[in-house]
Simulated scan of single mutants.
Amino acid sequence: MSDNWTDTRIPDQSGRVAIVTGANTGLGFETARMLAERGATVVMAVRNIEKGKQAAARITGDVTVQALDLSSRDSIQSAATDLRALHPRIDLLINNAGVMYPPRQTTADGFELQFGTNHLGHFALTGLLLDRLLPVPGSRVVTVSSVGHRILADIHFDDLQWKHSYRRVAAYGQSKLANLMFTYALQRRLAPHDTTIAVAAHPGVSDTELVRNMPAALRGLFSVVAPLLTQKAEMGALPTLRAATDPAVVGGQYYGPRGLGEVRGYPKLVTSSTRSHDEAIQQRLWSVSEELTGVTFP
Rank of each mutant, 00 (worst) to 15 (best):
D194S: 13
A171F: 07
S273C: 07
P239M: 04
G204H: 10
H164L: 12
G28L: 01
V20M: 02
V147T: 15
V99P: 06
L92P: 05
Y172D: 06
A216F: 13
V263G: 15
R242D: 00
Q66R: 13
H87N: 10
G22Q: 07
T25M: 07
L70T: 04
T31R: 09
R264H: 14
T271G: 01
E112H: 14
S287T: 15
M100T: 04
F115C: 05
D3E: 14
W286Q: 10
V17S: 08
L125P: 03
L218V: 14
R38V: 00
P247R: 11
A226W: 00
Y101L: 15
Y101Q: 13
L228Q: 05
Y184P: 08
E50I: 14
K268P: 00
T274S: 15
V65Q: 02
H122A: 03
W5P: 12
L134N: 11
I94H: 06
A244R: 09
A200M: 05
K163R: 13
G294I: 09
E112C: 10
S206C: 09
S14P: 02
N118L: 02
R167S: 03
K268T: 15
V288P: 11
H164R: 15
H156C: 07
N4T: 15
V99W: 06
L93G: 11
I94D: 00
G148M: 14
D278C: 02
T107Y: 04
P203H: 04
Q282A: 12
G22M: 11
L133S: 08
D3R: 15
L260I: 14
V43K: 09
T25P: 02
P227L: 01
L292E: 01
V99A: 05
H193V: 13
T126G: 07
G26P: 05
T245R: 06
W286A: 10
A216N: 09
T6H: 01
A56V: 11
E291V: 01
T296G: 00
T126Q: 01
D69T: 10
T8L: 11
L241H: 04
V250D: 02
A124Y: 03
E50G: 04
P267A: 04
G52D: 00
D158Y: 05
T271K: 15
S289I: 03
M1D: 09
T183H: 00
T245L: 01
A153V: 06
F157I: 09
R219F: 00
R84G: 10
Y172M: 07
A198N: 08
A233H: 06
A216I: 14
N179K: 07
A226G: 10
M181K: 07
A243P: 12
I90A: 02
H156M: 09
D12W: 08
L120Y: 04
G294L: 08
R284F: 01
I19K: 06
L120W: 03
P227R: 04
L70F: 05
Q105P: 08
L228G: 00
D12P: 11
V142M: 02
I281C: 13
R242N: 02
A18M: 07
D154K: 13
R264I: 08
L269K: 13
A32V: 13
A280C: 00
E262G: 13
N24W: 00
A36H: 02
W5E: 06
D159Q: 10
R275Y: 06
Q114P: 11
I10C: 06
P203T: 08
H149D: 01
Q105S: 13
G110W: 05
